[in-house]
């Protein structure tokens, strides 16, 4: 029975990660599209993001109830046992669930407000969005292997989480823009993204390496434990995403003139999204089922 709760927790957490990153990508969209941003482009991205955020919200609930069921060890009935739910709500797990629900609800309200307001400037969307992104990232630090460590480590994890949410949340935005704009505009957008991505990707790699160093007592543990092996698989997938990004930057984007090359680009971004989903699933498993 316990493996069912593991699967449900991993599924719920994966949906949360995807909802979180969809919001981060949507907040970044006005900057990505650039000056002369057509509000309709941003609105369409926000409409899609809202659906994904809503799914993320359901994911948080699924994760919380599945975690309660796992702790209660009473079968499926444990998921809705009132006493266990109360106990779980009083722990760090409850804090994290509350922060996630508030963060994603705030994201939905912000997105819908932005879509329905007549003010065309994006400047208030970004600071409000960043505040909610910080709250969602803090919820990840509230629980898990890093939560017991000093503030410095938690700050490193927050930087990692925000960087990843932004990076992986931007890819579906790129895909959508690439399928709906002419090659010249897509080329500008892709070049702008490559320029913006350089520093955050560096932060992701450095913060990821710092955490990996803290989580393992020895190099042997990296390949001898299941946690280490799964982490290596995640690193391999991230490496694939980086290779695809490099392929876009150096080969596909410079060739962007004909519609054929744009089709190749959108297909390649589609592959990138598949790898991203796998990274989210593995991360959810690493932080739920296994320990270093």
């Amino acid at each position: 029975m316990s493996y069912i709760f593991d699967i449900l927790q991993v599924a719920g957490k994966t949906l949360f990660y995807i909802g979180f990153s969809a919001f981060a990508g949507a907040v970044y969209a006005p900057l990505l599209i650039g000056s002369g941003t057509n509000k309709k482009d941003v609105q369409q991205i926000l409409i899609v993001a809202e659906k994904v955020i809503l799914t993320g919200l359901l994911g948080v609930l699924l994760w919380f109830f599945a975690k309660t069921g796992a702790m209660a060890a009473m079968g499926l009935a444990g998921m809705i046992d009132p006493l266990m739910l109360n106990i779980m709500w009083s722990t760090a797990v409850g804090d994290a669930a509350l922060m996630r629900v508030l963060g994603l609800l705030g994201a939905l309200v912000l997105s819908m407000t932005y879509r329905h307001t007549t003010v065309t400037t994006q400047y208030w969307l970004i600071p409000a969005g960043v505040t909610l992104i910080m709250l969602l990232a803090a919820s990840i630090v509230r629980i898990g292997h890093i939560s017991d460590l000093p503030f410095g480590y938690q700050a490193v994890l927050v930087a990692h989480v925000i960087g990843v949410a932004w990076w992986l949340g931007s890819v579906p935005v790129l895909w959508r823009l690439a399928t709906r704009n002419d090659s010249g505009h897509v080329k500008q957008i892709m070049q702008r993204f490559a320029k913006h991505a350089a520093m955050p990707v560096g932060v992701i790699v450095l913060s990821g390496a710092t955490m990996a160093y803290t989580l393992f007592n020895s190099f042997d543990a990296v390949y001898q434990t299941r946690y280490g092996q799964l982490l290596l698989l995640k690193l391999a997938l991230v490496g694939c995403i980086l290779l695809i990004a490099a392929h876009h930057k150096w080969f596909l984007v410079p060739e962007l003139k004909a519609s054929l090359s744009r089709t190749r680009l959108t297909r390649s971004i589609g592959f990138e999204m598949l790898f991203m989903t796998a990274v989210f699933i593995i991360t959810a498993a690493l932080t739920t089922v296994l320990s270093p």
């Binding site: 017991d148 000093p150 410095g152 480590y153 803290t214 007592n217």
Partner: peptide
Amino acid sequence: LLSVLLSPLSTFAHSD
């Protein structure tokens, strides 16, 4: 600054 912030632990402390 980063060294000071991270210095209390060099390896992950499991709550054994």
